[in-house]
Structure formats: structure tokens, C-alpha cells
Design a protein around this nucleic acid. Sequence first.
RNA 1: GUGGGCGUAGCCAAGUGGUCUAAGGCGCCAGGUUGUGGCCCUGGAGAUCGAGGGUUCGAAUCCCUCCGCUCACCCCA
Length: 417
Amino acid sequence: MYRAPRGTTDILPQDQRYWRYVERRAVAVCQRFGYQRIDTPLFEAAGLFVRSVGEDTDIVEKETYTFQDRGGDELTLRPEGTAPVCRAYLEQGMHNLPQPVRLYYFCPIFRYERPQAGRYRQHHQFGIEAIGDGDPLIDVEVIQIGWTLLQELELQSMSLVVNSIGDPECRPGYHQRLREYYRGHLDHLCDDCRRRFDRNPLRLLDCKKESCQPYIAEAPRSADHLCAPCREHWDAVTGQLDNLEIPYRVDHRLVRGLDYYSRTVFEIQPPEEGSQSTILGGGRYDGLIQELGGRPTPGVGFGSGMERIIVNLKKQQVKVPPEMPRPVVVVALGDAARIFGVKLAASLRSGGLSILVAPGNRSLKSQLRYASSMDARYALIVGDEELQRGVVGVRDMDRGEQRQLAEADLPTVLQDS
RNA sequence: GUGGGCGUAGCCAAGUGGUCUAAGGCGCCAGGUUGUGGCCCUGGAGAUCGAGGGUUCGAAUCCCUCCGCUCACCCCA
């Protein structure tokens, strides 16, 4: 027996309502902010992600699905959403559009990881990117969209965490400071942290080990060591968040795993502590477009995990409308009635109704059971008797009432239920 | 890559060496008289007990290996 590959899953009919719900609300929010949809290919040249996400990141180092196609090209299944959009921005000459270019997307994302709760090898992200404007107002706009979306999905008790990790001007100095601080404590750190010390000192702040927490608390904070322009940018971002009354917490431990981030980084987390808690995360990436060969072009965006949003919708028991209207089921007794019933179904469908024809060769009882199990609003009963009299039995499945109607009256009666 | 937990029908699940040619529940199908659902009752279909090997007179039950699922670490949405 074949199974879905590890870390992938089928999205079954009973779950579709959640997906459509999130999509609908997300699109609505995007449109109000003037963001337009973009779709990029499922795979890209492998080099795109190496350059953008960073050679030394876990994502690129050990999580990509990279393969050679029959022509010998190295391709990678998209492991994140931002780089492809930036590639499209460059390739399609979007710098000629009014800036910033505001885009959103829904797409599957592929990372070869060990699956666990809220983590998959194929997951789906909703994300937005605003490219071409470095104004802190745009950072705030992006954060506001993320925040608004979760509010409008009716998720409760979300917390927004923000930080600034500086830019190429001030980050090296901060790294330096961080290393100097940690150098004296190396003996007391966990093994992971000793590795981080060399490879990626920012990550030291992200350690979850109890024994490392005291050192993190005392560590120098990036937001306190920004260069003047970054400082000004950061102050404007927090000032605007205050102005918009978006509640946030500054957390100097917030660093993100992709190399391209600069200045503003942020995450939104649900109330319960959990390892896979972040459901939306992003930040500014002012160096990325240039890294990909374009003119220096600022950008900011976020990605959010559909699966993680949906887990929280379920956990919080958010009322999500059903995907399908309740159907009408045609119950036909005998061959002649069946022929009539199939035509009746077709004509009612062209009027926009959802019609099922009950499985044939079953008793009336059985067909009505079927109608019940389909959660039918009405059953339309056709037998020899009805055929002769030119009527259809209309059974209201909720009230258990039944009457005989002419075919011509059906659309109006069935419609206003 | 590392560590913990778990694998009995589509789902939940009893059973921990011998009446298991495997209980029960949900779901599915049929029937409960002649054309009427949801509740109830009866019957039916559906399981190489994750796979392979071993121990034993005898294994779903014990041992080994593998596979899979799951949770956590790492990292991330």
C-alpha cells in the first residue's frame, strides 16, 4: 500500500472549510491594503535559495529538496516564499511599477525535516511582500496586515514580538560585542551554544536551555547597539505601532533563521507555549534584491503557516462556516422515475442548486437514509405515482413534512431554504 | 542528525503464550412486509493482529532486526 510521503498529508473534505476560510479572510485583508496576488513556480534554480536564504542556514544546508532535471539543471522545490517573489520582481521588471510593489501569495513550501506537531515536509504558507520602499511605515503596514489577519480570523490572545537586528553597518559591531560578552561564559554554555558562538552568534540568544537563560538575559541587546539610521528606523517602527495601538512586546532574543533579514524582525505567537508556536514571522530584507543581482532595493514581508493557523483555529474552536450548502437529494423509485430524476437534477443544478441523486436500486427507506446521511435539506421523491400526476414529492428533512409540487415550482421553493 | 512513546479492520479499541478460525463501539451495506430518513432492533461485509526472522508442542501476546507513525531536541511557518 502506498502512503503519502513522510511529512505530507492529505487535506480532506472535512478540513477544506478551514483552508477556504483562512484564504478568504487573507485575500480580503490584502485587498483592503492594496496587495495583489502573485504565483511563482513550485521549483526554482537551486542557486536562488543558496544566495538568498544563505549557504550556512539549516534550510539550505540540509533541508532542501534539490534535484537535477533531465536537462541537467539543478532545481530546488521552494523552501520559502520570499526569494521567488524577489526573483520575479527582478525578472519581470517590477522596479518600473510604482513603488513599493505590494504582493501576496499562497503556496506550498518544501523542507526536508523530521516531521512533528505543526511541522511538515510540505506545508503551506500565506505571505506578503512589499518591495521597493524602505520607509518604516511599510514595516508597520506589513506587521499590521499580519496582525489584522489573525484578529479577523478571530484568533484570541495572539502576541506580537518585534526586534531590530540592525543592518550590515551595525550588525558586525554588535556580533563583536555579543562574542566578547559570551567569550567569558563559554564554559557554562551548552554544547549547541558553543557551536553557535562560532557560526552564528545571534542564535545564542535563541537557546531554550534553562542553563543558558541567565546569560541571555544579561547579553547585550541588538536594539541597543544600532547605528544611527537603524536606530531612527527602529524608533519609527515602534512609534507607529504605538500610534496604531497594535500591542507588541520587544524581545531582544528574537532573531530569525534566514540570512537576508535586516533591521525589523517580528513574529506572532499563539498563547500556549510550544516548540512550533510561531504562526507568522517575517521582517525587512533590504539587502536581498541586490544579492540577487538587482539594484539596491529594500523589501519587507512575512510568511505564515496555514497548517499552524488552522491548528489554532481548531484549538480555539473558532466557528468556521461550512464549505458546502446543504444538498437536495433526488430519490427515484423505478427505472422510469430514475430517468426523470436525473433530468430533474440536471435542470435544478443549472439553477444553482446543489443536487445529489440517491444511489439507485435501493429501497425508498434506504434512499432516504442516504439523504439523511448527506445532511440533505430536502428530498425530492419521484415514483410512478408522481410521474403519472406530473408532480414531485418534496420532503422537508428537518421538519419531516412533505407535499407534492409541480416541477415548475421547485426552484423557488428549494431556493429560499 | 539525536532522544522518548506507539503500531490489532476506514476510525476508536479489548486481548499481554493455548476454546483468538481475534470481543466491543463508530462508520459502511441490508432488513425490521407491501412507497418514507434521522432514534431503536436484527443481520452482513471488512483484519495476512506493521513486516521479516527467531524461541516454543503452540505467538497478536516473548526475543531480534527492519519499516512506519508520533512527540521532543535542532531549526522553522
